[in-house]
Design a binder for these strands. Sequence first.
DNA 1: GGATTTTTTGCAACCGGTTGCAAATCGGCT
DNA 2: AGCCGATTTGCAACCGGTTGCAAAAAATCC
Lengths: 333, 333
Amino acid sequence: MAVTLKDVAERAGVSRSAVSRTFTEGASVSKKMREKVLKAARELDYSPSLIARSLATSRTKLIGLVANNYQNPVFVEVFDLYTRALQERGLRPLIVNLTDESDPQAFVRMLHQYNVDGVIIASSTLPQGYLTAFKDARVPVVHTFGRASPNPDFHIVGIDNIACGEMVAQALFDHGYRDVAFLGGPKTSTSTQDRLAGFERRSAKIGLRSSVIRYAEGYTYNAGRRAMKSLLDEFEVEAVFCGDDLICMGAMDAARDRGIAIPEELGFVGFNDMSMASWSAYRLTTIRQPFKDIILTSIELIDRLVENPAYPSEVKLLPCELIERNTLRSTSV
Amino acid sequence: MAVTLKDVAERAGVSRSAVSRTFTEGASVSKKMREKVLKAARELDYSPSLIARSLATSRTKLIGLVANNYQNPVFVEVFDLYTRALQERGLRPLIVNLTDESDPQAFVRMLHQYNVDGVIIASSTLPQGYLTAFKDARVPVVHTFGRASPNPDFHIVGIDNIACGEMVAQALFDHGYRDVAFLGGPKTSTSTQDRLAGFERRSAKIGLRSSVIRYAEGYTYNAGRRAMKSLLDEFEVEAVFCGDDLICMGAMDAARDRGIAIPEELGFVGFNDMSMASWSAYRLTTIRQPFKDIILTSIELIDRLVENPAYPSEVKLLPCELIERNTLRSTSV
DNA sequence: GGATTTTTTGCAACCGGTTGCAAATCGGCT
DNA sequence: AGCCGATTTGCAACCGGTTGCAAAAAATCC
């Protein structure tokens, strides 16, 4: 059925190795031989089987891409970047969609069975089990959007959530706010914890009251909306720092539904700068994550790691940026 | 390094075939043998290499998933469904992210090289070149969200866009509108063409004026916004049928920015019922596509097609539903 | 208990490539 | 022309599984 190495070799009247060599990078073939082979290959419309090659070389060019945040539209942007960047490098993503019920071991085994060259984890809310499972399987792993730790077991690429929290506290203060709330994602999410930590630390330092703290049950619009409703029932604040744009939009709509004017009566700061943040229904002031840089860096890292599995663990934190739009009142105190 | 069939065979003191058989569905192994093998396998933490198996069986359990609409947040929902449904069946998606510049042939070759069992195309705006390229490569293909044709060359799973267009025309008429506009996606998109065709046909029949027609340059918020602005500059209508929710939201915001009240002064109908459509900033009346059914059907179809490549081409169109929210004035004429 | 049928097992070839090694070829030099 | 070292080429083993076939073992029957 399919045309193989052997067919080309026969047609060109050369050995199988000769054909193999013309199709593998940096092998020793004379110019004449290469041309003879390529001609035969062209005539037969041959292209080498990556499966067979993988078996022989134990390299697959497959990269496992593990994620569990398919609910958040920002993920579509992230996903787009990953898949494009990988395929530009000749790598293929093998997707794992983690659901709450799925068993870590099973997925690790599966990726192992496909003999992926490496794994990129794209999630800040990943059960620890996964990470250690990969470690046990000796698969190179890069954890993107993960929490930084001084002595990491894995390569981590992400942002400094603590610094971001501080940046927001400072910005709110600079805009004249003195009494603000934090509305995070799930309490168990490390990124939420870190953002809050930074937020509180800077607040304490500069004299910003930030004792009202709420957690949404998920990084979703509805969770944000619900959490904001209950926050409004109990407290009165001047501004809210939300741990995610989606949560923030839900919160803004909850406030507007009560007739609260934004930013005149209540200010908001989001997180991520997803494309919707610039929509004129929201015009959200928010923290922009350098998604593109994070993703490119992680792919570079996994590439290097595949070459040299012993490469020592690195933590790369990339800088974020405050994008000012219309959800904070203007700077005059 | 990795533990192989042979290791297990030696440890269990049996032949390699015996080990292979205990790990392949429906092979002939006695209970005693199976247990002996499984015990050895467990002790060595063995799991069969899918790469090697693929080489031997020429089945990979890989399904190419080809898409080019990574800009639209609705795609994240679609993607979630695809990846989950595939992995529940023991299949793995191999993602192809088509950009405008990418060469059809190259991707077809690539999927061929990975020896994918089948390909699912998830796009309504795909250059014809891709489809024929796959056909030439004799890879089973299911085209989802594609245009129905009486004598299709491929399996198609999607919706009846013409019927949807008719449904919207009727709904607008029933709500008392008499003078409406169509604001579609790109003019080259077959789904846009079909929706318009149905819309115009029914309009003509029931006496709904629908001669104002505009196309957004893409299925994006900004494209919708721009198109709506220019529409408002030139025409006055009572309601707008948008070819996509995202376009619709852009259009609504363009209208609101001019102080137009929705639905009192201007009605809107969207398409897709993406999760944002229910946000209280929009509360969009829209057509819901049965994404889940479409996707499950397409996977079933590709499964069957892999078993039997000669399976005759089918077109499956699934019914849509009008979801009424708050962007049309109430029914009283 | 022996003949016959059915099930289980092992052998060996194969899937489509890669690669270490030794033989063959080439080019340059005296 | 003859010799030497560098390149190029082919042989054959290997990557880790599957599977048709025939022999061996077990189950069935009389």
